[in-house]
Amino acid sequence: MPKPRKISQSQYETLAAFRFALRQFLRFSEQAAQGAGLTPQQHQAMLAIKGFPGRARVTVGELAERLQIAHHSTVGLVDRLTAEKLVTREPSKEDRRQVFVSLTKRGERLLEGLSSVHQEELRRIGPELRELLEEMTGGEGDS
C-alpha cells in the first residue's frame, strides 16, 4: 500500500467545504422528495430506473446494485412504489426469475418535476462545486 501523501491545512479545508456542499445538495434533494410525497430512497429508485443506461426498465437486481442496497430491501421499495402506482413490474419473458421494473406515466411526471428542480439547484451551486473540485484535483495547495 502506498504511503499516504501529506495533506495541507488548505486541502483539509477544501475537502471539508466540498463535502459540506455535497451534503447541502443531498439535503435539498431529500427535502424536495419529501415535498413531492416521496421518501428520498423512492426518489433515488425512480431516478435510477429512468436514468439506467440504454433502456427504460431495470431488473430488481440491477436496481439494488444502483442503490447499493440489499435485494430484499429493493423488493420492499418496489412494493411501496408499486402501491403508489409509480412503477410497474413485469416478469422477464426469457427468465421468469427476473422481474423488470419501469416507471408509470404518473411516476414519469413526478420524477420530471423533481429532476427539474434538481437541475435548477445544480445550476445554482455548480460553480462552487466545480471550483472546489478543481482545487482538490488540480494540484493547488499540494505540498
Rank of each mutant, 00 (worst) to 15 (best):
M1F: 13
T82S: 10
E112D: 13
Y12N: 09
R19Y: 13
S116F: 01
I69Q: 05
G126M: 09
P4H: 11
E13L: 12
L110P: 00
K6D: 12
G107R: 00
S102A: 14
Q31H: 10
T137Q: 07
R19G: 12
L26A: 15
R23S: 15
A48I: 10
A64T: 10
Q34S: 08
L26H: 15
K85D: 09
S73D: 07
Q9I: 10
A17D: 13
T82C: 05
R27Y: 14
L26D: 15
F28S: 01
V78N: 01
V99P: 01
Q34I: 04
L114H: 00
R57C: 12
H118V: 01
V87P: 01
Q68I: 05
M46T: 04
G138Y: 08
K3R: 14
A64M: 11
P53Y: 12
S73M: 08
G37W: 02
Q119A: 02
A33S: 06
D142V: 08
V87L: 03
M46D: 02
T104K: 04
M136Y: 09
V99Q: 06
G126Q: 07
R27M: 15
V78Y: 03
F52S: 14
E62C: 09
D142S: 09
L67T: 07
A21K: 15
F52P: 04
E94A: 06
D79K: 07
V117Q: 03
T59P: 05
L103Q: 02
Q68C: 06
P53A: 13
I69N: 03
E121A: 12
Q41P: 01
F25I: 10
F25H: 14
A48C: 11
F28D: 02
K6N: 10
L103D: 00
D95L: 07
P40K: 02
K6E: 14
G139Q: 05
E112K: 07
P91C: 03
E90Y: 04
M136E: 06
Q34K: 08
Q42D: 01
S10A: 11
V117Y: 00
I69F: 03
T74N: 08
K6L: 14
S10I: 11
Y12G: 04
E13S: 14
E108A: 08
L111H: 01
S143L: 10
R109M: 07
E140V: 10
R19M: 12
E135R: 14
K6F: 15
L77V: 03
E30S: 12
F18P: 06
A70Y: 14
M1Y: 12
E30Q: 10
A56G: 11
R130D: 09
D142K: 07
K6V: 15
E13P: 03
